[in-house]
Amino acid sequence: MSDLENERLKTLEQVFDAFNRHDGAGVMAGMTDDVVFDAAAGPEICGRRIQGAPDVRAAFESTFAMFPDVSWECTRHAVFGDRGISEWIFRATTKDGSRIEAEGCDLFGFRGNRICSKSAFRKDRPQQPAKTGRAVA
């Protein structure tokens, strides 16, 4: 692996660490100002396209606000030339207590050691019912 590919791998690790801290500034530190993010769902063939660092950051921070416990358990990162991939398990709880747990991946484009494109893909698994019962103190 080249030095630049190693730098890009470190960028992926740092970005996902920031995602899991719910740190919008930290996530964006690994991305270019003109980053393009294609969300997993939306009305377009690409899902929903969001362009530019301010709008992409707002989209990520909206996810953090909607799911206060959201996390991405990364199972693998790989870099090959100016492309990268991260495989992960997305976990979150909805406002009604239902759980989302699904595998997914991101495809990345790099410019230098920063991410210039991110395209998300997530399994379309139904939400799992909220757990019922009494909490144990």
Rank of each mutant, 00 (worst) to 15 (best):
G84A: 04
D124A: 15
D106K: 00
A29I: 05
G42R: 13
E87P: 09
K95L: 10
D96C: 09
S62E: 12
R122F: 11
I89Q: 03
A39V: 10
R21I: 00
A59V: 10
G81Q: 05
A92F: 03
D96M: 06
P43N: 15
A25V: 12
G52P: 05
I85N: 08
W88Q: 06
S71M: 05
A25S: 14
K123V: 06
D55S: 14
F80P: 03
F80R: 03
P126R: 07
N113Y: 04
G97K: 10
D33E: 13
E101W: 06
T63Y: 01
D124E: 13
T93W: 13
Q51R: 15
S98M: 11
R125F: 08
R125P: 11
A78L: 09
G84W: 01
A120D: 05
F80K: 02
D23C: 03
A65N: 14
S62N: 13
D82N: 15
F64N: 02
F60W: 13
D82P: 07
D96K: 12
R99A: 09
V79N: 04
R99Y: 09
R91W: 07
F16N: 01
D23I: 02
R125N: 14
R125M: 10
T63D: 14
F19C: 01
S117Y: 05
V70H: 04
I85Q: 09
I45H: 15
